[in-house]
Design a binder for these strands. Structure first.
Lengths: 180, 180
DNA sequence: ATATAAGTAGACCGAGCTGTCTACTATTTG
DNA sequence: CAAATAGTAGACAGCTCGGTCTACTTATAT
């Protein structure tokens, strides 16, 4: 594997697990078994590495979610598929997403709250992409009217974001499914 | 005002605004206009100060939420009051909660993910207390059956947690209100 | 009034951080 | 082959951090 990718993946795992500020360069190069010079050959600094990690995570997550939610024909099916997919993630059953520790981007935004900082912008962009994917999927449901897509997406995003937080903080890993 | 409280409030504002790891002792004592010795007279170290801040925030938040949601008689009224109260918070219209920057405890948990660390335990405890308050309020609604309280609470908690994250990360500050 | 506690200002220490540099080795490529 | 590139190991500089300490100054309480 490419050294740059290897360093990125190693750093991502540490950042996701422990938080960004808690992980130093020395820990990363030690875990990746590379020399410090190698890391600084591929990345201008820690900031660039952080952004590479977020980018890597973004691609992995969106690809997973795309595959996990395709080919649903009704709103009910899509919602159920969406919920169970997230529940799999919460239980660390999705190999490519690693040991569940909340949303990498919510976590990162907590550490980088300055709204115009590159990290914060990457977090916003990720959430916008997830929202966009959900709208795409809703538009593929035959029983969803076009004018309902935005509000349904907002509703589903709110539930998924809420469950991510609860799964991380409180260990509650099941979506609410209200039976009327 | 008591020096200990003054230091706690100053530190809390900085922690809430910038994140815990991003704020050093020197910044705190400088902002609070106290000597370093004063701070270390009242707190054994940064960790103890952090916990005091979380405790302060917890009390302030729960007290606000208790007052904001009392005397609702129906589920519909309670839910609407809950949502509009949170929306006020998102728009920084609640003086005692300061400039909105997400949930202090979700943010803190992102920085302290070790499940048994004191900070993480304080975050879990806070969320449990919010959940408990919502259940209490639901039990006060005349049209809510006792056996529905847990699932309704889970549903409302999921929506509020989700909206907190979206308000912070994406700037989306309005609850979804699906009109059937 | 005087002893004790609480406070100020800031120097200082050791540790850890990011990032640079030297010296050397391996690998790739023209 | 030769030159450039990518790599290793690790020392080191410069900075910041948490935390301690000295010397001095209020404030408080018996």
């Amino acid at each position: 594997m490419d050294k740059r990718t290897h360093i990125t993946l190693t750093a991502l795992e540490l950042f996701y697990d422990k938080g960004i500020h808690s992980v130093g360069i020395n820990e990363i190069i030690s875990a990746a078994n590379v020399a410090k010079k190698t890391m600084y050959h591929h990345f201008a600094g820690k900031d660039e590495l952080i952004l590479a990690c977020l980018n890597e995570r973004h691609t992995t997550f969106i690809t997973w979610l795309e595959n996990a939610t395709n080919q649903q024909t009704t709103l009910h099916d899509f919602q159920e598929r969406l919920f169970t997919s997230f529940e799999d993630w919460f239980h660390s059953k999705v190999a490519e997403l690693g040991n569940f520790n909340g949303c990498m981007f919510i976590n990162a935004a907590a550490e980088y709250s300055a709204p115009q900082s590159p990290v914060n912008l990457a977090c916003k962009a990720h959430k916008a992409a997830v929202s966009s994917l959900i709208k795409q999927r809703l538009s593929e449901c035959k029983d969803v009217k076009a004018e309902k897509i935005d509000s349904l997406c907002h509703y589903l995003m709110t539930l998924t974001e809420g469950m991510i937080c609860q799964a991380k903080v409180s260990g509650m890993k099941q979506f609410p499914r209200l039976l009327n």
